[in-house]
Nucleic acid binder design. Structure first.
Lengths: 249, 249
DNA sequence: CAAAATAATGCAAAAAACTGCAAAAAACAA
DNA sequence: TTGTTTTTTGCAGTTTTTTGCATTATTTTG
């Protein structure tokens, strides 16, 4: 493995997890700890990360506060969000799940747009409170700490009673055969109901998550009408979805 | 865990709760108390927080800021919040409405306290997500832009189905004869139900709001068990409430 | 004031970082 | 290709940092 590959890998780990241990890197990359140490030293002197005793941390890892932390791959997510905004029309009623991509989405909603938004996410609700022209309906229920959205029976029940124009589903794993999958059983139930409730289901997904599969299944890809990624729609990785008749943006 | 992570975590806790105990940190971070003490010492010598006997407090905790009256009021609210925390016991089920005083309250909830919290406020919910030992149940409904809490039928219905130890009602106007009053009709309905649902209703009120009356009535003061203000309990402005048999803190 | 809690200090074990060095790999020139 | 130079890598020994513990001092609280 090339030195550059290693360093790219290290940077990737740092950006995703905000931190890395040299011992983990050494094992993952199958090189001695001295080598990764040297790599981290180089990256550190290039100011690409911050070297600390035992590992390294991301430059912009200044807080555990979820709102304050810079969103990883924010540029890509913003690009996805911008494409999604294009679907919205005045008077639409939409459902928005949690996740950072959806956060970018609501940040970008034009202030003149009149919408009714249902969401199980307190964070999304908070961001939307700035918008005068948006009616927000908070979906209640027990908060899942992992996904930071309301889940459980009450949430599902409400979802089963509504019918919306769009459901924007964020941060899932998606695969042409396995469909939409997720790690958390509770979240699956919420997303299932969100999809049931929508005339038009839109999946917002960073391309990393494409072709990856998790333990539990939310739905077949046939249930999805639109997939939005940061890639060009004709990218080969998206071909299987195009062929399945899904609208790819 | 890296030293830097620990210190970021400590800073975060200090920012959110304004204070931390070394013993809590030691337990939360799974290191000896000596280690967190050293961390706090470092952070302290970097002037990032203020070390005190038993823990640390935020730098701007007690600083007098002559410019911002908002900060001044925040101190009062924090004082109120601190008194309110004293009521809470492990295992309690509580209802917390919106408002900045209640925000201060949840910021001060000790990390070790196990609670179940119902709230119609996305902001309160977000602040509570940091606490591992608190189960959060979000009350759904149409968000009132003014009060930033969920209101409306669904919220009321849920409230009518629960029974909690405490309801913490923030930011209302209170008067010995007129009782608890409010400007917004929708919010009245929510607060009424919150009071119905509680064994023990606690009103958190800055002394400015005492003896002021608004258009709509939430309830008589006889429904209130405890009033907490930033004043001493024997302040003459609070006498009428004492005489009405209300617990004044 | 005395008891309890917390802080400071010194110390030793463990983990990690640095240093110099030599072998291996890669780059380059003839 | 072959030989030379440069870079990369792992290793061994030394130094530094981190951490928990024991002991002693200090602060808090009733």
């Amino acid at each position: 493995m090339l030195k550059e590959e290693r360093q790219l890998y290290i940077m990737d780990r740092v950006q995703i997890h905000n931190r890395v241990l040299l011992s983990d890197l050494s094992e993952a990359l199958n090189v001695s700890i001295d080598t990764v140490r040297r790599d981290v030293n180089e990256l550190s002197s290039l100011k690409k990360l911050k070297k600390v005793h035992g590992g390294a941390i991301s430059n912009d890892f200044n807080s555990y506060n979820p709102l304050a932390t810079t969103v990883f791959k924010q540029d890509k997510k913003r690009l996805i969000a911008r494409k999604a905004i294009g679907l919205l029309k005045n008077g639409n009623v939409v459902l928005i799940s949690g996740g950072t991509t959806n956060q970018e989405l609501v940040k970008l909603i034009p202030h003149h747009l009149h919408l009714t938004v249902f969401t199980p996410s307190p964070i999304i609700a908070m961001l939307l409170m700035e918008h005068d022209n948006i009616e927000i309906i908070l979906l209640g229920g027990k908060l899942s700490k992992a996904a930071k959205i309301a889940a459980g029976g009450q949430c599902i029940t409400t979802l089963n009673e509504i019918r919306v124009d769009f459901s924007f589903i964020g941060s899932g794993h998606i695969h042409p055969e396995a469909g939409l999958t997720e790690l958390d059983w509770e979240i699956i139930q919420v997303k299932k109901s969100m999809i049931q409730a929508a005339k038009h289901t839109v999946v917002l997904s960073i391309s990393d998550k494409i072709n990856s599969v998790q333990r539990y299944k939310t739905c077949d890809i046939s249930r999805i009408k639109t997939i939005i990624t940061e890639l060009e729609p004709d990218n080969e990785i998206l071909l299987p979805f195009q062929e399945a008749g899904i609208n790819v943006l």
